[in-house]
Every structure is written in structure tokens, then in C-alpha cells.
Write a protein that binds this DNA or RNA. Sequence first.
DNA 1: GGTTTCAAGTGAAACGGTATCGGGTGAGCC
DNA 2: GGCTCACCCGATACCGTTTCACTTGAAACC
Lengths: 178, 178
Amino acid sequence: MAADVPPDTTPAGTTPAGTVPAGAVAARAADRPAGSSPFALGLLLRQAHWRAASVMSEALRPLGVELRHFAVLIVLVERGATVQRDLVAATGSDKAGIMRVVDDLERRGLAVRKAVPGDRRARAVEITPRGAELVDAAHAAAEPQAEHLVAHLGPGEAEQLGELLTRFSYPDGGGPEG
Amino acid sequence: MAADVPPDTTPAGTTPAGTVPAGAVAARAADRPAGSSPFALGLLLRQAHWRAASVMSEALRPLGVELRHFAVLIVLVERGATVQRDLVAATGSDKAGIMRVVDDLERRGLAVRKAVPGDRRARAVEITPRGAELVDAAHAAAEPQAEHLVAHLGPGEAEQLGELLTRFSYPDGGGPEG
DNA sequence: GGTTTCAAGTGAAACGGTATCGGGTGAGCC
DNA sequence: GGCTCACCCGATACCGTTTCACTTGAAACC
């Protein structure tokens, strides 16, 4: 099996003048220090998000929920009953992903889909008392982990980071609302 | 203090025809403002990374490469020929993912696998002149986009954000170098 | 009343991660 | 000194998750 591997079309014939030292090849691009690369911020955000997600996911594991579920639950707590369309916008996820998550939440009794009076096509998702309990427990479980995440930063720097990230993420000034 | 994180802009008055009052269901958990939740930082990082990735990915699209490829190319430019094992550590990805990316890069002639003299099992990945060209072009293409990303921040705040993120992401102080 | 637009749901394809396998090296043992 | 064993690196196979294109039903608009 495994015959679908593409043929090794690696000509490698584009090597004039013999062996080119690695340094000379990337002369222009390498002149820029890593910090000033336009991609540095994105790479940094990727790394930072990975670290935060790892720690938070670990904190949530004993509760039987995952981050994607919890992101939706938090929105439900903050905004009350929310139409799935707004859930998509609030979490940045895809429609299908939100639907899958709401399915899981409904199956576990942490949230329910309710018909919206005015619009029969829309479905409002609302958290259940059990879901609110779980959110509360998750907050308690995650708090020490969250503090550990920023323990090595100076005083006030965590808040500063959060403030900068908020302004970076929502350039229109509105914030996650809406 | 600028317009901070809107702590509790709970949409009490904004009732878009479907908002059912959450009532006492989420009484305890909802008491916490969003900014003080242990998950706030992680959610913020997710959103920020999503925004940066969207813009950068869009900038890279005309060049025919994706972010995961480019992350490897950048490491190759900065460090020269690199064993795949170190590539995994530098990018934070997995072995399998790095292998797939290197496969793509090799197929496109942007990088080549070379045998390491001392260790016959290891394979060093080196960028080709064509790959270096592409990195250079990508830098040029992405620079205005990167500036646009932080255009609404105050002077020096982008650097401050980068510095905080670096310290957050690498608590051991080492930085991405390994 | 017909058309256009929007929300929710569904199925297929792609991406990312984990577990496993084969090749290779070096250290310890016979 | 040759051999075996434990570890390392790269590659492959498999699985879960995410993402994209399509369908259905309902509301707005002309």
C-alpha cells in the first residue's frame, strides 16, 4: 500500500557553483533580526496561545470538558441566551464546529437549544444550571493555573499584556461584545 | 487609562428580539467580569493569534505558501541547515507535521534534505536559493500588512507587546533558540 | 406571490496530533 | 573484538478535529 506517495521529483540540480554555504544563501532575508520580522508577532502569538491552551486544557481535563466547549459556555454565561450565529462570531469558530460543540453540551445537559419567539429559523442556546455549576467549578480549578502562567512576569505585566492583547484583537475598539 | 476592557457591558438594554434574560441561572459565574476570568488571557491570545494569522496568511497567499511552510523557512534562514529534530523544537510543531512541511518544500524546490556527514540517520534541511528568494519576497509582501496589524496601537506598544509575549511564551528565559 | 437573503444543519475533504515502525548509533556485555 | 541492547532520528499509518461546499427551511424584500 502507500503507493500514493508522489514521486521524488527532487531535481536538486539548481546548485550552481558547488556547495553554497548556508549563510550566503539567505544574505538579504537573514539580515533582519528575528524580532523585526513581520512574522515575529504572529509566531509569538502562536507560541503563547499554545502554552496557555496547554495549561488551561490540563486544568479542564478532570472536569470532562474541553476548551472549545468551555469557550462557548463562557459566552453563554456572559451574554445569556445566544443565537448560534452570534456564537460563531463571538468564538471565531466555524458554524459546523459550534454546532458540534452545542450538540455535546446539550447531550451532557450543560446547555439547551431554545426556539426564538420572533424568528423560527434561529435557535438560541442557553446554559443550564448544571452548566453554570460546571463553569463555576472550572473557574475555581483554573484560577491557580492561570496565575502560574503569568507567575514569572513582573507585577502588573499580566494586566498590561491583557490590555494590549484586547486592543490588538479588537482594533475597532468595541471589544468582544457585539 | 484608555477605554479599558469593558468589564460588564452586559447587554441589559440591548434586547435584539430574542434575548431571553438569563436570570439567576448564571448568577455566581457571571458575577466575575470577563477580564478577571482565568480563561480571559487564553481566549484573548486565541483571538489575537487568529487575527494575525488571517492577515499574514492573506499576505502569503499570492506567493503560494502557507504559514506552516513559512515558519520552517524562517528557521532555515536564521539558522542555516537544520536537522529535522531541531526544526521540531524551533517551531513547536510535531515530527510528523515538520516532515510533511519539508516534503512540500522539497517538492517545490524551496528546500532540500541533505545527509549529515557524521550521523547517517539524521537529515539536515537546507533552504535553496529559490526558497531564500521566496522568503525575501514574503517579507516584503508581509511588512505593510504587519504594520497595519498594529497601526491602531500607540507608539512603542507593538514592541512592548512583542516583548511581553516573548517573556510569557518562554518562561525559562531561553527564548526560541534551542 | 416570487425572488433573494439568512440561519441551521449535513457530508466530504484537509489539517494536526498520536502511536507505531524501521533504520542507525553508541554503550555495555560476553 | 564481536555482539546485543537500549536509545535516537526519521518516516509511516491511523484517528480526531477542523474546515469547506452543499442542502433545507424560513424570513425579508420587491
